[in-house]
Amino acid sequence: MGKQFLKGNEAVVKGAILAGCTAYYGYPITPASEIAHAAAKYLPLAGGTFVQAESEVAAINMVYGAAGAGQRVMTASSGPGISLKTEGISYCAGAELPCVIVSITRGGPGLGNIGPEQSDYNQLVKGGGHGCYKTIVLAPNSVQEMCDFGLMAFDLADKYRTPVIIAADGFIGQMMEPVNFPEPVKVFPAKPWAIKGTKETRKNVISSIELDFDDLERHNIKLQKKYAIIEEQEVRYEEYRTDDAEIILVCYGIASRVVQSAIDNLRAEGIKAGMFRPITLFPFPHERISQLCDKASNFLTVEMSNGQMNDDVRLSVEGKKPVHLLSRYGGNVHTIKEIHAKVIKIMR
């Protein structure tokens, strides 16, 4: 496969098509629009469907329909559009429909701006919609990962019959890097539960309603079991110089790229800093962070939000070590300098 220099937003579409995605339904919003542009260009060429929906609400419900029909289907949006999609994501989770939703997070709240933020962590990771559901959340920090996760997301979605969210920020979507493309997926899981307008699928029903209290309780317990298996099997993370680290900086997405540079500078000055990057935000790598508590004396989350992930790190650390926070907002990305200064301040 070839190597190509392209935007994160385009890479995720190409990865998805290589994964056998045949339908895209979406509504334009900066900084996610290039995803729709690429889908509009490439999906019809690949024999697939692209429809610009009348709203994000319609788009996610089209995704619900396509997933119900057994297609590999995706949508993408940002902030306000993700808010509109949450009801539909809850329906997909309830009806156990596999699908992929890409969030290119922008500045909030409200209309905010189109700069990169990580302020939708809670919405994406904690199940922004109603009901006791979770979605698998993958957080890429490079254009290569946008492509790779575009591919992986569909496998995870089908494996667990669940929506999977790719949670990137505006910078990861907008930046360009070289990508090595994986081989196209050739074998797809059977979906005997789907409805396709055929004799074989006639008895199937796709629904999230369970009128009977006990039936709905059983359904919820089944979902929770599924999430427990996901927590057991699908945790992914990356560590950078954590072996002997006294302070561990926890971060994801574009922030992790800046932190990595900051760590090198700190190490050059003899400060034992390391980076821990959750790749799956759900399932969150609680166990590994808890282990790291034995060695590190301090944790610092570097987030383009008010510390929404910081809560999860605290849950892992269980009060054993201090968990500090360095926030930026409004489209601003941390500078290496300010990360450096914060670490020095903590370690003195």
Binding site: T49, V51, V57, A58, Y64, A69, I195, V205
Partner: peptide, 23 residues
């Protein structure tokens, strides 16, 4: 006794759109 899918409030035409386009 046909293939059935239950849609969110008001969104049936969106669901129907995708079903029809898929098949």
């Amino acid at each position: 006794d046909v293939g059935n899918i239950q849609a969110a409030h008001g969104r049936a035409p969106a669901v129907a759109t995708a079903l029809k386009r898929a098949n």
